[in-house]
Write a protein that binds this DNA or RNA. Structure first.
Lengths: 355, 355
DNA sequence: CTGAAAGCGCTTACAG
DNA sequence: CTGAAAGCGCTTACAG
């Protein structure tokens, strides 16, 4: 009977408010948008009518259609929602994005990039998209967004046309970390990597797996470390967690001590903590017998003894800069990319190589 | 000159696709929505025209306006984005929500409830809202949503008209946990609480602070523990983190041993871990000298020795049930609330009271 | 300061 | 199976 959706009581419209107030729809609109001059008396009449009808303000969808803006920015994450937010780096990024938006009231629509996620991106009501933790098959996502003429800002992704890149010096920073270990005399070094494929396969990283990998950040960090230690064995994990660090560390450390590396480069701090836990379990002294290097610079809240040697990345800045790039794109300025720099923080988990 | 927004190249429309394909707009629409019968030949013509024009499919905003649905559900969080997601319970909840939506492709718009957040809620393009970690001043948020005739599902909030409540047995579960301590002979018990006010003030919880508090879940858990230990001192924290647990624990434990409680009830597992850390720092044996009880049942990944005694809550179920309630509301079924139950898991951090 | 008109891009009965 | 028409609820030039 009623033309509205059955789930909702009939919602009052601006037209009904205007008619009750005895003004035109355009005038009523002006009252709510504040974009034009309206006399106090008129404004009061309109507001009174709105209150009487329990009108909640202009319908956001209609306003969006008319204005050509949704006021929403998509945040495209690699995995399922919760996994993406379990990574402290992504949380810092979110903080930064919030900061970067400042007073612009933009909503954040989280879009997990599932297998068939192109479809999700094709129909999400967004003005711009920020791609996070991007690795696998990002190109198709970008194509879908480009067809919709939606500006894209990608964080730590490979270079792509028409995409504003917010980069981290992953390769260079990793190289500097590895040099720190080399300067301490380390020669037998192993690497614990972040996921290198969409399947998050664990295990030794063969040249073949390397070639087929699309995990840009992981590859960059690995390449940097191998600039210093070309033959370093690398073991991949299923994610940046303490557990995963422990799993990988066991395969590297639970071996005859002659075969053990004297240093482990972990591609994240959480992985490094896992390595430290296993070293403790196995009675391997850090840093006397084993040096451990992390990446990220997260707060560890006393999860380890001492201070982790790590590459501190400006995670919040990354988000802030991404948000600013989005704002620039929406304002019609073609954003330029930014490369942010990580700093080596020498803690107590690295020291002179044994012997 | 061009009527479109300056930031975007002119986007092709369905009308242009239809005209190029030589069909009506309605027919072209049918091709993309799949909601009506279209001959293969016609479909092919339309698709070819779309490809030629690089048409990305129907505009989501226009579709939303017409259909009266945005396909987006708001997730209203208490704090800033990142804080909300730092809590492992909220992450589990997100997992559950994703599960509960199943094949319904609903986007999640995160809406941090700031001071002026009513305005945010008033204009967010959403079909329904899920209120998380709700405490302060939730009533105004609900009013704003009700005026918009948007169904609201609230998790662990006080009862409100027109809101589907997904509840946890906070009070009862806390009482059961306290009884476990009482049965072990504990009489001097202290409580470390979650935030009890919007300002996240730390310190002893006076009757006055209690009265002015609006943190529903916190109050429920406190009331449950005090059913067993009416005079237990309570110290509030600024959030569910290990750090905060440590801060509170220091005020309770770093005192002459005669004045020390023999058991601490922490309102979250992270707080409990903080308590355990401080006990270790101070050389207080757990459980010989101090029993520690948590709440939540999160995975602790070896962050503590032994197994935390805690109340395991079905966090994922909470999300799943909330999502199902949203689906029911959108389908026109008025959802009933659900109360979920937590189970006491006795670990190794509680034991007989000393003496 | 106010109003009449056009139109944002689509979907959905309805008729054929 | 296809098309013409109405309309979702608003905002924005434009004219007065």
């Amino acid at each position: 009977m009623a033309p509205s959706a059955p789930t909702r009581a009939a919602r009052p419209t601006l037209a009904r408010v205007a008619s009750r107030a005895g003004v035109s729809v355009s005038t009523a609109s002006l009252v709510f948008s504040g974009r034009g001059p309206v006399s106090d008396a008129t404004r009061a009449k309109v507001l009174a009518a709105a209150a009487a009808l329990d009108y909640a303000g202009p319908d956001p969808t209609a306003r969006s259609l008319r204005r050509g803006r949704t006021g929403v920015v998509g945040v495209v994450t690699e995995d399922r929602l919760a996994d993406a937010f379990r990574d402290p780096m992504n949380l810092a990024l979110l903080d930064g994005i919030g900061e970067g938006f400042g007073d612009e009231r933009l909503g954040l629509l989280v879009i997990p990039r599932a297998v068939d996620s192109a479809s999700e991106l094709e129909s999400a009501p967004i003005d711009a998209a920020i791609l996070l933790g991007c690795s696998t098959d990002i190109v198709r996502s970008v194509e879908a967004l480009h067809r919709r003429r939606i500006p894209v800002v990608a964080i730590e992704a490979e270079r792509m046309d028409g995409v504003v890149a917010i980069d981290l010096d992953n390769r260079d920073a990793s190289r500097r970390g590895a040099e720190h270990l080399r300067d301490l005399g380390h020669r037998r070094v192993a690497i614990v990597t972040l996921p290198i494929d969409a399947g998050h396969t664990r295990g030794e990283v063969s040249p073949e797996r390397l070639r087929s990998s699309t995990a840009f950040g992981t590859l960059e960090r690995l390449a940097g470390a191998r600039q210093v230690f070309p033959d370093a064995i690398a073991v991949s994990t299923a994610g940046s967690t303490i557990d995963e660090g422990m799993r990988a560390a066991r395969t590297l450390l639970d071996v005859p001590s002659g075969a053990r590396p004297t240093a482990i480069v972990a591609q994240s701090d959480l992985l490094a903590v896992g390595v430290l836990r296993v070293a403790e379990e196995l009675g391997i002294a850090v840093p006397a017998e084993l040096s451990v290097l992390g990446f990220d610079g997260i707060r560890l809240e006393g999860a380890i003894e001492g201070v982790l040697t790590t590459l501190v990345q400006p995670a919040i800045d990354k988000g802030r800069v991404a948000a600013e790039a989005v704002l620039a794109e929406l304002a019609g300025d073609s954003g330029r990319g930014v490369e942010l720099r990580s700093e080596l923080r020498v803690g107590t988990t690295t020291g002179l190589a044994p012997h």
